[in-house]
């Protein structure tokens, strides 16, 4: 079959697979309000409730707060993304 140009990754994942695979990784969580939280993902659940460690809060790109551990209520979450950035490098 001639290709449609679509690449199918060898590790095709469902969203649930993605969420299972990112525990322990550095992530950026963007809220509906636009605020960013960067830290290490401890765990999360099906409602996108998130528990993070060493969390930094960025508002308009500026570091505003740090939390040793943080729980974010899932309804506020726009997205969770893995990041290669280490902490302290800024937004």
């Amino acid at each position: 079959m001639s290709g449609t140009g679509e690449k199918v990754s060898a590790t095709t994942k469902t969203p649930a697979d993605f969420l299972k695979s990112i525990r322990g990784r550095p992530v950026v969580v963007k809220l509906n309000s636009g605020v960013d939280y960067r830290g290490i993902l401890a765990c999360l659940d099906g409602y996108m409730n998130i528990a993070m460690e060493q969390t930094e809060e960025y508002v308009n790109g500026q570091l505003k707060n740090k939390y040793g551990d943080a729980f974010i209520r899932g309804n506020n979450v726009l997205y969770i993304s893995t990041t290669k950035r280490t902490l302290g490098e800024g937004a």
Partner: peptide, 14 residues
């Protein structure tokens, strides 16, 4: 009421 909550932390120093 929980629907107003954004974030929870055990640290109060900031």
């Amino acid at each position: 009421r929980g629907d107003g909550v954004i974030l929870l932390s055990s640290h109060t120093d900031h």
